[in-house]
Write a protein that binds this DNA or RNA. Structure first.
Length: 543
RNA sequence: GGACCCGUGGUGUAAUGGUAGCACAGCAGAUUUUGGUUCUGUUAGUCGGGGUUCGAUACCCUGCGGGUCUACCA
């Protein structure tokens, strides 16, 4: 439905191409991660974009690993990336690897030499960089730029044969050392790296660079629209230049389109910076629930549906953007509100004694008794008009149970309240439909029966950073803004039904938030992660 | 200094030359046995200056602001 109403500018480009150059069945997409880190929610934006485009147009989509740098990549990353995409709810048609195209790339490189469009340079990296100069001035051509075709071919073959050391030779495209676009100042196509590759081992000792690989891989797979983030915009002329060298009539010439990457408030997205947080032990690993990685969100209790909905909501443009984290929280709350079973758990207990309650009674499935726990925060000796929770002389409903009235407190020698005493109205049981049970009482508290409750570990996660744009300050390092209270571990008291909770289950702890069972849970010790709090309009009144 | 890209409420995003709309956040109220949910209402915006046009958020010029580029990373 609505197939002809583009929902963002990339669809508009596609619709235009459909009218002009490309037929519908030739539309093809790809998601091209480098296997050198874990996927984060910024990747999810790109994944949703590409996969949903392929779904919309009924065409195929490849997962392609951009594995051209054996010094940084690994099979563990390949595995985690596949797992995360599947978890998000998407299935690719072909699983591809740029490393499978190395032979073709090599042959094309030779073709470029034959055309006089590439040459082997033997200057040091420092010299090559220096000759490139800056964007504001002309570069200097390499003295090896005019090497003969025969010699170039021979040297490239010897590079491949492993006759040289790393850094001794490189293959460069011969484009324009005066271009204002630095990518066109004779970019490197091949470098010597005597490293074993995670997939193809020691088959190669020269590796193609990203620019010399990406567009050609798109071409081999006949990708019609190659979507990437905005920082590749300046690479597009090079992308097209390479394709022009190898293009054959009748084939699809891929089109690169750029869109802006996702930034989320109160967090960071850069792989390198995430890595730093992990190395410095501010978080416990790539799947720490505070991280914006997909594995982190999964552990935190976020559902793939919520993440997909979020990605659809944020749109696709070319502007800089910082999306408010509350939009993500809205997505997960919206879903969990519909699906999560409600239970009662006390996180910061205070004892509540119901003096006139007979010791033996109970409510089926949810034991009620004379001695309960309620949240310390839910009691004040002297209430106020705004505070409609328990206070001395005031009435409150215990959720799914009785109406009680506070009558006295017991304090320790420091004056801290250790016990609240109350009376209950035995006719006021919830759902009993008595006149007393139908009385309007402003406040309702959650509770657990102290003798029946089970102890649980609860990990209260909060934002990783205490400022909205930890990354946006040029003078200060993002590490300065780490929220020291991003994790608080407490012992809670849960209703006994939680004994049956399984890893990954998610509940609403009534009046507190949504919590999921952590994989670290074992038989005697159930661990809950707080996914997100409930919206709390009381917190605002208090402040 | 150069090239390329981008400027719409606090945030994200629509409007493709014809009433500036939606969502989140905020605020107010109603409902509520979760201060949740739900419902209703509401505050708030086209970066500035010129031009083209009956009419400009859109097109042109210019200024300003922001981003990217000076890797043998992707």
């Amino acid at each position: 439905m609505n197939e002809h109403v583009p929902s963002h500018f990339i669809e508009e480009i596609i619709e235009n191409d459909l009218k002009k150059s490309v037929s519908r069945e030739n539309l093809r997409f790809r998601f091209p991660p480098e296997p050198n880190g874990y996927l984060h929610i910024g990747h999810a934006k790109a994944i949703c974009l590409n996969f949903e485009l392929s779904r919309k147009y009924g065409t195929s989509i490849n997962l392609r690993f951009d594995d051209t740098n054996p010094t940084k990549e690994g099979q563990n990353y390949v595995n985690s990336i596949k797992k995360d995409i599947l978890w998000l709810g998407f299935k690719w048609d072909k699983e591809c690897y740029a490393s499978d195209y190395f032979e073709q790339l090599y042959q094309w490189a030779k073709k470029l030499i034959w055309k006089g469009k590439a040459y082997v340079d033997e200057q040091s990296q420092e010299v090559i960089l220096a000759q490139r100069k800056t964007p504001f001035e002309a570069g200097i051509e390499s003295p090896y730029r005019r090497r003969s075709i025969k010699e170039n071919i021979e040297l490239l073959e010897r590079m491949r044969a492993g006759e040289f050391e790393e850094g001794q030779y490189v293959l460069r495209a011969k484009i324009d050392m005066n271009s204002p676009n630095m990518n066109l100042r004779d970019p490197i196509m091949y470098r010597i790296l005597k490293k074993s590759h995670h997939r193809i081992g020691k088959k190669w000792c020269i590796y193609p660079t990203y620019d010399w690989t990406h567009g050609q891989s798109d071409y081999i797979e006949q990708i019609s629209h190659s979507l990437c983030s905005i920082e590749f915009e300046n690479h597009r002329p090079l992308y097209n230049w390479y394709l022009d060298q190898i293009y054959e009539d009748g084939k699809i010439k891929p089109r690169q389109c750029e869109f802006s990457r996702l930034n989320l408030s109160y967090t960071i997205m850069s792989k390198r910076k995430l890595q730093r947080l992990i190395e410095k032990k501010y978080v416990q690993g790539w799947n720490d629930p505070r991280l914006p990685t997909l594995s982190g969100f999964r552990r935190r209790g976020y559902s793939p549906e919520a993440i997909r909905e979020f990605c659809n909501k944020i749109g696709v443009t070319k502007r800089d953007n910082v999306v408010d984290i509350s939009l993500l929280e809205f997505s997960i709350r919206k879903q969990l509100n519909k699906t999560a079973p409600r239970v009662m758990v006390i996180l910061d207990p205070i004892k509540l004694v119901i003096e006139n309650y007979p010791p033996k009674y109970g409510i089926r499935n949810l034991p009620f008794s004379k001695r309960l726990y309620i949240e310390r925060e839910d009691f004040m000796e002297v209430g106020s008009k705004k505070f409609f929770r328990l206070c001395l002389g005031g009435e409150v409903r215990l959720k799914n149970a009785y109406i009680i009235k506070g009558i006295s407190v017991i304090k320790d020698y420091e004056g801290k309240i250790i016990e609240v005493h109350s009376f209950y109205d035995y006719k006021s049981l919830s759902g009993s439909n008595t006149k007393e049970s139908l009385r309007k009482i402003k406040g309702t508290l959650h509770w657990v029966s102290s003798e029946h409750s089970i102890k649980v570990e609860v990990r209260l996660y909060d934002r990783l950073f205490s400022v909205p744009f930890p990354d946006g300050n040029k003078e200060r390092d993002f590490m300065d803004f780490i929220n020291p209270n991003s994790l608080k571990v407490v012992q809670g008291y849960g209703e006994p039904s939680l004994r049956e909770a399984k890893k990954g289950n998610i509940f609403q702890f009534q009046r507190l938030g949504y919590f999921c069972v952590d994989p670290d849970t074992y038989k005697e010790r159930i661990i809950f992660n707080r996914t997100v709090t409930l919206k709390d309009s009381w917190k605002k009144v208090k402040q």
